[in-house]
Design a protein around this nucleic acid. Structure first.
Lengths: 339, 339
DNA sequence: ATAGGACGCTGAACCGGTTCTGCCTGAGCG
DNA sequence: CGCTCAGGCAGAACCGGTTCAGCGTCCTAT
């Protein structure tokens, strides 16, 4: 099948290629009747701009990149990414931008992907997720001058690179306060990958608030997998002075922790309260359903994409807040026995 | 930062742009010393071909498309896609192809996405997942002549479009035979979206094998969500003549079904056996861990991507089998009481 | 009456690759 | 020794858009 080009339109309309370009792009330079004629013919012929041709002359790829550096075994289980991506897409669709996705083994490889995308003019900008405490990717982005939005880090400045950050600190404070209000005096936390900046931020705030409120705190560093969640929960719950509540850094670890509690004969929530960070259908699937910190992940993705799109349109990079997290109380948390 | 072009290399090497092209692409037309000089200079300058320029002249986008049409609420929970994608990427990386991803609301919209990708020269081919029993997308692909690989359908011919299909029928036979061998005489099945071709194939084989083996069969049509799984499991298990085993079409519904069984006071596996189609960490997370039909999903994606890449290289479209499924027996299945 | 714009459009250059044609040189052959 | 032919390369065209300079034409202001 043959796809029409602007030359075809120009011939049919009896004008030059240049005039067609002006007409189709809504730019001055053609009369209104001519513009309408060109638009009508373009419509009739079913013309769609050739991505590569436009990219070549406009020096814009018309695409943004998302590289994901998590081990494959975690990747599948994380509901986060697909939801995040579906949120991104909504914004991209409005602007006729495409999403180029790449799964990479680690952040070093991700930096290389950025370099290559940049060198090949493959994407106009990237959305960087899972910022590390010490993250080599930030330097790469800065060196390349590749437009980017950093997602999931904290709210600080990163040398002029935009960011979208959830206020994990505030959320952590509310969770701890909630648990303390329920009478809990020893709270455990099963963290995600400690090198992630938002995990570090949560841990810092967890330590701080528990100290402020004068309750005991025990943190165990995990990696978001169910195995780690189960192992660390078992560790926490086997102590003679076990915590009466545990905050898990994701739903998968929380569910695994729940299974461990049940296996150890601990009643949830009577003897142990469980909170999951990030809500998902998984939290509603288990019994009791898990109290969770919910956030609108598609909206999060959309915010990130919109921020990047605006930078590509010429806006200055800025730090914008993501949707706030909200504590959804379900059956896995309760007043501590005798509290 | 400035990115070098072939003209820069040509100038540095003292040859023409054309000669540089021959040298870099390993084609005849330049002497060996010149080729080496050009390659060395390209390396020094860090030259990477401009995606758009190459795409424009070579009439190849250098990318393949994957559109996913599942409601957002299911999307996040399905471990399938991210694993599938990571498998695709391995193959694409070898061939310097990019993956363009788009999430769409339904298959009609997906057809439109194919049309647009084709018209815009955005991708060279697509991987189509979740074939429906009557699927409008197939006609779109055929009409456009867009190279494609259909994944997850059955093994039949589709008018010259390639396919990669798991032998769901054989797997279903093995599951039913396994359960019957354990003494089960009434087997339930909670299916996924009935309009999906592989779901229909499974149901057909389920009906056929249960008939052959003269055991009762009860099928309930779900939609892969935990809510449906729970509701349908409850329906099956509330019957006076309830099945003693249920095969669920995915892990999420199986886990939901397990929760329902426990809630109803049915011991698993003593009073009810549960099998999950598609294994995932989720199946290992719950107690008892679920017997599941496991398959190597990344390998599945890689097979599909390789098949498409070969078609783009000129190979004839063919139907290739995916990795076989294997029944992983865990704690959720047992000999039927009194069987 | 005429200079000066603004408007509407043409034609060509350009983006960075690929590919075709054709020239020049040197080797091989009769 | 001259002719042929192949190899090695230059130069230009081309892919399909965007953009810029320039050129008539008509309108307006002086």
């Amino acid at each position: 099948m043959k796809r029409p080009t602007m030359s075809d339109i120009a011939r049919a309309a009896g004008v030059s290629k240049g005039a067609v370009s002006y007409a189709l792009n809504g730019r001055p330079g053609v009369s209104e009747p001519t513009r309408e004629r060109v638009l009508r013919i373009a419509e009739e012929l079913g013309w769609v701009p050739h991505t590569a041709a436009r990219a070549l002359s406009a020096a814009k790829a018309g695409a943004i990149g998302l590289a994901i550096a998590r081990p494959a075994r975690i990747l599948g289980l994380e509901p986060f990414f697909m939801q995040f991506i579906s949120g991104i897409e909504v914004v991209l669709a409005e602007r006729a931008l495409a999403l180029v996705l790449q799964v990479v083994p680690d952040v070093a490889a991700e930096g290389e992907v950025y370099r290559h995308w940049w060198a090949a003019h493959r994407v106009d900008g990237v959305i960087m997720v899972d910022e590390r405490v010490s993250d080599p990717r930030v330097a790469v982005l800065a060196a390349l001058g590749l437009p980017a939005v950093i997602v999931g880090g904290h709210t600080g400045d990163r040398g002029g690179i935009a960011s979208v950050s959830a206020d994990d600190s505030a959320a952590m404070r509310s969770v701890v306060e909630y648990l303390v209000a329920l009478g809990h005096r020893h709270i455990g936390r099963v963290a995600g990958l400690a090198e992630l900046r938002h995990v570090a931020d949560r841990t810092a705030m967890f330590d701080r608030v528990t100290a402020e409120l004068r309750v005991r705190a025990t943190v165990a560093d995990g990696d978001f997998t169910g195995e780690a969640g189960a192992r660390l929960a078992r560790g926490l719950l086997s102590r003679p002075d076990r915590p009466t509540a545990i905050v898990f850094d994701n739903d998968v670890m929380a569910v695994a922790g729940l299974a461990v509690a049940q296996e150890l004969g601990l009643a949830v929530p009577a003897e142990l309260s469980i909170v999951s960070w990030d809500d998902s259908p998984l939290c509603r699937l288990v019994h009791p359903p898990l109290t969770a910190l919910a956030r609108d992940i598609p909206a999060f993705g959309a915010t990130a994409a919109r921020s990047l799109a605006e930078i590509l349109d010429g806006a200055a990079p800025a730090g914008v807040p993501a949707e706030p997290l909200s504590l959804t109380v379900r059956g896995s948390t309760a007043r501590v026995a005798g509290g």
